[in-house]
Nucleic acid binder design. Structure first.
Lengths: 112, 112
DNA sequence: CCGGTGTATCGACATCTGTCAATATCGATT
DNA sequence: AATCGATATTGACAGATGTCGATACACCGG
């Protein structure tokens, strides 16, 4: 059993184009970007982000992306572990919300 | 034999958090982000970007990342096809240069 | 306490990906 | 032309990844 949540740290690194990335920083940044490097996860993120309160229930996410529920849960977990989404269970339902600033941090690193 | 270079188009899409991404836009954006989702490629990008004239010779890239030359060539090709690097051969040497604005476009889409 | 519903985990599978050694290609130099 | 040095391509292989069905795990309403 892994740690309670083991979310990846807030992402490292000075802007890519400033100075050569060290091996460890590159690993860490790549882990975060990998979580974004999938069309389904990008769609999930954007649906959540465009929803009221920037959060959405799993039940609202399965149909739009047209994939099986376990698959959607899997993708949401990856996004949560990478720190882009947070999970809060209310009753039977699980709500995933955009973590404010998480995408911006990546954007900052990429920005020239 | 594929087309001469078949570089991916300049990347699509309004900011992620504005409105739900369509399936095709998501595919296209994911293709671009996938090219960035590898520690070696991030390091190559940052080394190139931090070099004089924002370009570097393959011969200068192999040693820093500590991988075999064919592997480095492979990664550079992926970055070039994704539109982040451009290749210019001068004599025996191949120089890869950062394509201005290419990273910023991704950053814009991610930015909240 | 029991059935039902929403979500997560597991196991399996096909596919994709990163890596290297071997080899081909291309350009320069003798 | 013969060779040498730099880069690209090929083939192979281990490991990661996306997907699903089956199943387990809450939580709620009777």
């Amino acid at each position: 059993m892994p740690a309670a949540l083991d979310v990846i740290q807030p992402v490292c690194c000075a802007p890519l184009v400033r100075e050569p990335l060290g091996a460890e920083d590159a690993e860490e940044l790549a882990r975060a970007i990998k979580a974004l490097a999938d069309p389904t996860r990008l769609r999930l993120l954007s649906i959540v982000a465009a929803s009221e309160g920037r959060e959405a229930c799993v039940c609202d996410l399965t149909e739009p992306v047209g994939l099986a529920q376990p698959t959607v849960s899997h993708h949401l977990k990856i996004l949560a572990e990478a720190g882009f989404l947070s999970r809060s269970k209310r009753g039977t339902w699980a709500y995933y919300a955009l973590v404010p600033g998480s995408l911006d941090r990546i954007a900052e690193v990429l920005k020239g």
